[in-house]
């Protein structure tokens, strides 16, 4: 399938960029004229993935996060990547309520939110290498 449009951006792993990333992703997808609900879901999922890169990937130290959005006729693919700590056990990380940082009042619901709000979620990660999140969302109700 041919992409209709594509963008890629990189930014520092600062918590203030969580809002930046979700606003940028939503305004890029908005050109496909999806419903408000779909845009809200995308905003939330992007916020989760970027927050994870900031808190868990780079442990609030400086690093670079990249975000790529690929727009297709009927769906969008969003890839968010860090080169931080990586995940030891991906299956465990995906479980609702699982968090390695209860001290930060994390709820352990990030991956569950991404899974529920998007149509697909793939996690590629290796300890010491980093984490790549790939999510897709249908833009047209079929």
């Amino acid at each position: 399938m041919q992409p209709v449009n594509r963008m890629k951006t990189e930014f520092l792993s600062k918590s203030s960029n969580e809002a930046f990333a979700r606003v940028v992703a939503a305004s890029f997808v908005a050109q496909a004229d999806p419903s408000i609900d779909i845009l809200a879901d995308i905003r939330t999922a992007v916020s989760e993935a970027v927050t994870n890169a900031v808190i868990h990937g780079y442990e609030e130290k400086e690093g670079i996060i990249t975000m790529e959005c690929i727009l297709y006729q009927d769906h969008v693919e969003i890839i968010i990547e860090d080169h931080g700590k990586g995940i030891e056990d991906i299956e465990q990380a995906r479980m609702p309520l699982f968090t390695t940082r209860p001290d930060l009042e994390r709820s352990g619901m990030g991956f569950t939110v991404m899974e529920t709000f998007m149509d697909s979620l793939e996690i590629e990660s290796a300890p010491g290498k980093g984490t790549k999140i790939r999510m897709t969302k249908q833009l047209v109700y079929r």
Binding site: T44, T51, E105, R106, S107, M109, G110
Partner: peptide, 12 residues
Amino acid sequence: FMDSAGIGFILG
């Protein structure tokens, strides 16, 4: 807007 950080915040 609220993501899962809000859940942790409310439960806290």
